[in-house]
Design a protein around this nucleic acid. Sequence first.
DNA 1: TTCGATGCGCAAACCGGTTTGAACAGTGAG
DNA 2: CTCACTGTTCAAACCGGTTTGCGCATCGAA
Lengths: 344, 344
Amino acid sequence: MHGARPTIGDVARAAGVSKGTVSLAYSGKRPVAEETRRRVFAAAESLRWTASSSAQALATSRTSTIGLVIARRPEIIATDTFFPRFIAGCEAVLAEAGMGLMLNVVTDEDAETAAYERYAAGRVDGVILLDVKQGDRRPDLVRELGLTAVMLTAEAPHEDDPVDTPVVYTEDAAAVGELVDLLVGAGHTSIAHVSGPLRYVHAAARRDAFVDAMTHHGLRPDRIVEGDFTAASGRDATAALVDRADRPSAIVYANDVMAIAGLSYARSSGLRVPEDLSVTGFDDSELSAHLSPGLTSVSTGADVRGAVAARTLLAALGGDARRPVLVDGTVVVRRGSIAPPSRH
Amino acid sequence: MHGARPTIGDVARAAGVSKGTVSLAYSGKRPVAEETRRRVFAAAESLRWTASSSAQALATSRTSTIGLVIARRPEIIATDTFFPRFIAGCEAVLAEAGMGLMLNVVTDEDAETAAYERYAAGRVDGVILLDVKQGDRRPDLVRELGLTAVMLTAEAPHEDDPVDTPVVYTEDAAAVGELVDLLVGAGHTSIAHVSGPLRYVHAAARRDAFVDAMTHHGLRPDRIVEGDFTAASGRDATAALVDRADRPSAIVYANDVMAIAGLSYARSSGLRVPEDLSVTGFDDSELSAHLSPGLTSVSTGADVRGAVAARTLLAALGGDARRPVLVDGTVVVRRGSIAPPSRH
DNA sequence: TTCGATGCGCAAACCGGTTTGAACAGTGAG
DNA sequence: CTCACTGTTCAAACCGGTTTGCGCATCGAA
């Protein structure tokens, strides 16, 4: 039926030139006479030829693909809207550069390592490292495997950290500080925090920022519950906090999903939001904006982070190792979920 | 520093055999003496050799990668948790088979076509088609491009449809029918529907199912609002439905996000849920289970669909063209968001 | 007319695997 | 002792591109 895909040889023959010339006509790495170039393009067009990317990859040892391994529990992947937004942001940049994105979702550490090893076998040119953990071994792993990498973090890297992996970071601490300021400004003194899993650097950073901000206002940051970013944990943590006489008048959650689940729980147990309980989220999801009341959150531009990470990785692949890049645009979005505390 | 990656030639030399023997030892396509095989494996191990996937791809014209193009507006990707769940499901199957997943997120049709064309240039072996639309041209496109494909739909393919693309489908209609049954059984007679964009076959199928179910109960399906799966549209559609004297006593939403936003809107405009308004979602997201009241929804096992789609595609790649596959497991999950209607 | 410079394209090597026809050693049968 | 046969390995071709040394033609200057 439809014959095999045409090769560069077919195009060369049709245009009456050699394979090399066809290649050069496309890459422009050496001048080709205008007239010849036209013949080549015409031939390619009529044969509907496109270079085979496998052949190209083999010849150039560049795959035009970058890899992303997501290592999270299914419940979180299924809930948190960060990933799809992040990926969409990456894609926009990658597509423009003609690059592809290879995705792997893994659930245990062995599978994670295996994924990077497969990547290193010439499937991708570089990788983006998400969800950096305390003592994360991936930077070493990827270096060992010879992969170019970019790492996402939630705070500026320490000066003395021997960072050889390019870093793209946001400054979550400032945003958390702002949230606390807002609450304190509204009159709250009893503020709790539901964090993410503290083994993640970003979750720990937000928790630390909460502690600092509270301390700064002379308040005791003594109600901190560790959640795990799932709706279930948000609900449970909230239950633990509000089902008692000395419940807080406000809760700062480490992500929107936990905040929404918490808000919903509080409401159904008789509390009015925001009158009896103010809540804030983090990572502003589309849903949060359209709830009633809207959820006060921190818009961190997941898509922008994806775009910047992709751009930085492309630069690194081009040999342009750059200093840590700050992704700006972290902004507190105030909505109806915050109000002055009622007396109770 | 770290020398270039070892090649099969290095392994051959180290083991004192030829390249071909190394290849055979690994593929097993021809017998290799046990003793030789051991030497080869030992050499490969000590050199830390792994076959270059580009070279393999070129030689075998198989990339061990499948492609997935997601063509949706950013707001939807950012909200709907279907995609990450679906992808996680695919991955589980693909990883097991040593295959990779290439992902592309596009926003317009040209980019979509371009993505498939890049795929066809030897980047992937096959593709999964999501979100089939009325008169979708992708089946033709991928056939023309010589890509193996699997298509996901929400109803059994019509007998007379000349389906040459393998289909994996769910039976959404039955589930929608059950939802309506539940509501009618609880005493509701004024039930509205907020659909998805009707150009999508699955959204239209759910709408049709709603119409059929209502008609079956002798009710007039005259309050249907077309949404677009976003939280914003869920809120707006709900506003249009409930901010009037003859508001419905129940609303069937085509996905959870719209339902959650709608529920939230209804509550904040003074309606009690479920006492004054019962609501149901679709595609059961983790969040829905942990809201209070929990959202009655239809669990369609996005991850299972992903897994089945991946498995079917792998089979198709293996030349095993099979009849349409039904993904079972669509089940109505009843939670607190349904109650008998109150008088008003 | 001769000579170097310049522009252009060809042919061949190469990337790192897979595949296959043929060679070779060892074995048992005739 | 020869021959057919089996089991094992080798060498070379091939996949479809990219890269580069070299030759050829053309042209202006000496």
